[in-house]
Structures are given as structure tokens and as C-alpha cells.
Design a protein around this nucleic acid. Sequence first.
DNA 1: ATAGGGTTAG
Length: 779
Amino acid sequence: MEFDNLQIGPEIYGELLQGCVYERALFTGQQIHARILKNGEFYSRNEYIETKLVIFYAKCNVLEVANRLFHRLRKHNLFSWAAIIGLHSRMGFSEDALLGFCEMHENGFLPDNFVVPNALKACGALQLIGFGRGVHGYAVKMGFGGCVFVASSLVDMYGKCGVLEYARKVFDDMLERNVVAWNSMIVCYVQNGMNEEAMGVFYDMRVEGIEPTRVTVASFLSASANLYAFKEGKQGHSIAVLSGLELDNILGSSIINFYSKVGLIEEAELVFFRMLEKDVVTWNLLISSYVQYGQVKTALNMCRLMRKEKLRFDSVTLTSVLSASADTSNVKLGKEGHCYCIRNNLDSDVVVASSTVDMYAKCERIDYARRVFDFTTQRDLVLWNTLLAAYAELGLSGETLKLFYQMQLEGVPPNVVSWNSVILGFLRNNQINEAKDIFSQMQSLGFQPSLITWTTLISGLAQNGSGYEAILLFQKMQELWIQPNIVSIISALSACIDIASLEYGRSIHGYIIRHELFHSIPIATSLVDMYAKCGSIDQAKKVFNMILSKELPFYNAMISGYALHGQAVEALALFNHLKEEGIEPDNITFTSVLSACGHAGLVNEGLELFGDMISKHHVKPSMEHYGCVVSLLSRCGDLDEALQLILAMPFEPDAHILGSLLAACKEHHDIELGKYLSNHLFKLEPENSGNYVALSNAYATAGRWDEVSKLRDLIKEKGLRKSPGCSWIQIGGELNFFVAGDASHPNTEEIYMTLALLVREMQFMGYVPMVSNAEVLCS
DNA sequence: ATAGGGTTAG
């Protein structure tokens, strides 16, 4: 057909372009554009056509072309302005959108109720509440107040700026509300963390009989996921199905997100495989959910499948991969992930940077962690906290504190997480008083300690031998109406380590029963452990028999309890039972059985176990294992062989292993070896009076009273017994020291005086004397 | 005009 001969006016081309706008038919529109240009300036420089072209390219989101055509216009009008502002606003060039809005106004064009929503969207994106209020005022003055489009945009804008009251007021004042208005209100609450309120609006909407859209359900599911609201979320899914809503990427992702947050991975998978189109977000959701539930292999497999689908990993995918590497201490995988980030420019993302730092720290590569941190340009609170936590974990309290000040100098105020790390850093470095100082400092600066703060302090004190203080803190925490959770209960139980704390342990047990936490395996494990340490092996056995768990740590707790009570036969029986159940014992199991053999003098059994452990169970012997065998050998008098074993170990001997051999010197009157060992020990642990006690025991049994009293004076002179954190064990050691001398010491009177005073002091400090102490007093 | 995903503390 010969188009050139036909009389087609410019307005026909305009109509055709409008059709392309409706259809978003970019290619056809470009053909028409070409034809217009070929037709000459009468067509191409026609204001109506030029405006239509701007609108067409703007609606097709072709920013550059739309911009160029717009700037070439001799005369702008309301429509071209509206198109270009809308385009910028849609594409996220919010500043340009608002500049356009101002310029348009200055040039005498009054933005209409189609432009105002776009301007408001830009205000929301930039969180410019002042500008937003101005636009609001303009809209009211122009009489757009009743327009649902404008009002819905206002709700959204105020929500994005975090001013909930204004959003709610605009919403409440609306005379008619369509579904978008309702959706905006729901989204507004979800985005500001007010999930209950979001659900409330959803239910109001249901009562009003408004049909939900995908946006409604997706937002409702977000709220359910954030609240871990199992029932509500399932209802949301049902509504989506019943309303016949199309399972698009966003709705599908919301459903998957909900299921994975509440731990229903199978349900999440079901939805995932039912979705016809899946994008990066959908895949990422499933991947991160696998990582979160420890299924690293499945997660990595999903990554491979994702690549097969020709989808590119983004920063969220890599965050999951790095987090998986951190969880499994897989530095090889972590490095691969890190390198992928560098190659693909994902390492500039702050979240990726945090996971990278965390990954290297958890893989025991603090030097790399630090380097990655130093190379970041943008540092947010979480990134600082990640490095703080890494230093704290290692007990590098000085570095932690330095970083804590540095972040403040760089204008990032710390939060509770940061404070918690500072406290942890001190505790891990045995700086109890400093930790407590920070704890009160944070409170005086107005930071409420969180449950984690309390738990950190409680378990730290317990691990540093201040169990009694830890128990008091646990009680104080409850007085402040802070509900303990499983982790904090376990840390409180770990503070109960001797008969003196049995009562507290029992009361925590009561709490556990009242709050029906009994079926948590970690809690049951800690209970067994607590009762065993507090001298109540029968109670430990009762708890153990009540729970049917085949988990190794649970068995380990009971076996170590038997070992502690010298019940080697029971320990060995349970060990054999465990093997019959097909559970592979670990290094902890062997430590307990070996030490049980040591206490019971079961030399042959112990040595055989030690051999089996290495050859059959492929457990690399630790210092503790060697320690057990050393005490086993020294018990039956093989002090030389024990010493040979120590010298042959692949470790530098620690104070504990030397101490156990030193203790044996008392039984076997080996003063020479005792002196040799003590010399090492005094250097290793100058603060531990136990070593002096052990040596004096050896002297005492050999009748060398001159040496005994020399050592006693030395202990007093060094003020060791009064050192901070002086524990019951040390006092117990002192008692033994005096006991050792009582049979033939020339001044028995004095010894009993001292003993009585010591026992009274013990009681004053809240300790209940052990049976052996009481026996000493009675004899 | 409204919608989905990732990182830190016990």
C-alpha cells in the first residue's frame, strides 16, 4: 500500500502512539516514530505529536529517549511534564522527579491530581516529610483532597516517612476508600514494624467486604511472618487460594517467606515448585531458608539449579552463601563466595560486607575479617557490630573497646548489641569487674539490658567461677520481669556447680516444669549436668531416664555425671549402651569415660579405651584425654610412664595435666618430681594457690614440715587466698593442705583453729561445706 | 497510588 499518497494528519499518528502506550508496544511505537520523522517537520515538530512521543517513551520506561525528546520540546505542557515526572518517579530518580515538579510549577503549569501522586511517591522514597507536607497542602488547596489516588498516595508517603499518625488521619478522613487505600494503610503499618496494627486493618477491610488483591495478601503475609503468626499466615494463604489470586512472583514469595519464617520448609518448597515464574527473590528465599535451618548442602544445590535457570546471583544470594560458610566454618566455600562478590561488584553492599567479615571471623581468620572491614567505604551499625562481636568472641577486650570508641567517633552510635559485645569481650578475657562496670555504665547511659545482655553476663560469671553471683543476677533479672528463655535458663543452670547451689538448681528446675520447658533436649541436658555437679546423681539419673532422647550431648551429660561421682561401672555401661544404639561417641564422651576409669583405677580398661578412641573411632586425642591417661598411670604409681607420656604429647603441657601428676606425687612420696613439676606450675599459674597446696601435700606426706610451713607462709605472703574470685575449690584446697598435716603436725591445736575459721568463712560466703570438709572437722 | 528476599550479640 502506498502510504505516502494518503492524507494522514499528525493527529492520526498521535492516536496510533496512544494505542502503543496502552499496549506498552515499544517496537511498534518506534516504527511509528520512524515514519513520523520520514514525513518531515510538519509531523515531527508538531506539538501534539512531540508530546505524545514523550508520553510514549516515558510510559515504556525508556528514560534516555524520553528525556532527550522532552528537552528538545520548544514548549512544555501539562502532559509532557506529567509524563516526565512520572517516569523519573517510577524509575527511582526521585530527586529529578521533584525538581521537575518544582520547575513545572515555576513555569506556570499547575500540577494536577495525576502529577501529585508521582511527586508524593518521590517524597516517600526520599523520606522528605517537609516536601511531602507541602505537596499535601497544595493538593488540598487545589481541591484534590477527595481524590482517592491522591489520598492513597498521601497515606503511602506518610508511611514511608514513618509518620504513622498523619497516614492514619488521611486514611480515616477519606470519604470513599478503594482497595489501594486499604492496601496502602496495611503496607504502611508493616513497613513501620507495626504488624498487629496491619493485621487489624486487614480484618477491618474484611468486615467492610472489600475484596483483597495480591498486594493485600502479600502484605498480610509479611505481617504474619514478622510475628511468626502461624494461624494467621495459613489463613492468608487460604484467602489467596480462595480468591483465585494469581500466584505471581511477589505473592508467591510472600507465601514462601511466611512458611520459611515459621519453619515449615516443606510447605515453602511446595509453593516454590508450584510457581510458574520464579525470579531471584523467590530463589533467594528458599536458599536462605535452607541455610537458616542448617541444610547447607541443599542450599548450595539450589544455587546450582538457580544458575541453570539462567538467573544471576545477587547480593542476597551471596549473603546466604557466606552465612552458610560461617555456620559450617567452611573457609574454602567462604573464600569462593568472597571472590565471587569481588568479581561481580557485590562487595560494596554493606550487608555482604557484614557477612564476609562474620564469615572470616567464624572461620578463625580474624586478620582477613579486619582487612575486609578496613576496605569497606560504607559502615553501618551492623557492620561495626559484626567486627565487635568477632573481637569479643576471642576475648580481645582491648580491641573491642577501641572499636567501640572508634565507631562513636565516626558517628555511628552503638546499640545494645554493641554493648553486649563489649561485655562479652571482657568476660572472655576473665575481666569480670570490667564486664560488670560496662553493664552498669550502659544502664546509666539509658540502655536497657536485653535478655541477651543478662544471659551473657550470667554465663560469663558462671564460666569464671562466680557461680553464686551469676545465680543472684538470674534472680535479679526475673525481679525486673524479664522472662528467661531457653538459653538464659541453660546459662543459669550452668552456674550451679556444687552442693551449695543445689537449692538454686532445684528452683530453676521448678521454673522449667511450671513453664513446660521440660521437653527441650538442651534444657534436659543441662539439668542432668547440674544435678550431677551439685552432688545429686540420683536426680540426674531420674531426669535422664524421663527423656527419651538419642542425642549424643544428652548421653554425654549423664556419662560425665557418672564420671564425676566416681561411678565408673555405670559410666562404662552407658557408654556401651550408646554404642549399641549406633551413636558414634565423640571426644567429649571419651573424656568422661577415661576420667571415670581414672577415678576408679581401671587402668587396663582406660588404656584400652584410649587406644580404641584413636584407632577405631578416629578421635584425635586432646590435652584432656592425655590428662586422663596421665592421672590413670599416676594413680597406679607409674609416675615415670606418666611423665614420659606428657613429654611425648604433641602439645605444650598445661597447668592441669602437670597438676594432676603433681597431686600424685603426694601418694607416691616423689618429692623430686614434685619440685620439678611445681617449678613449671608456679610459672604457668602464679596466682593459683592450688599448686602450692599440692606441693605442700607432697611434703607433708613425706614428713617435711619445714617445707610445708615455708610454703604456707609463701601463700599468705602472696595473698593468694584473698585474690579476687577466690573460689570454693581454692578454699577446699586450703583445707586439704591443713588436713594433710594434721596427723603428725606438732601444732595440731592451731590447725583446728584455722580449720574452724575457714569453714565458718566458707559458710559466711554462702557455701555449704562438702562432706569431706565436714569429716575433717569431726575427726 | 499500594506488594516480596539477605547481615550483628548469649
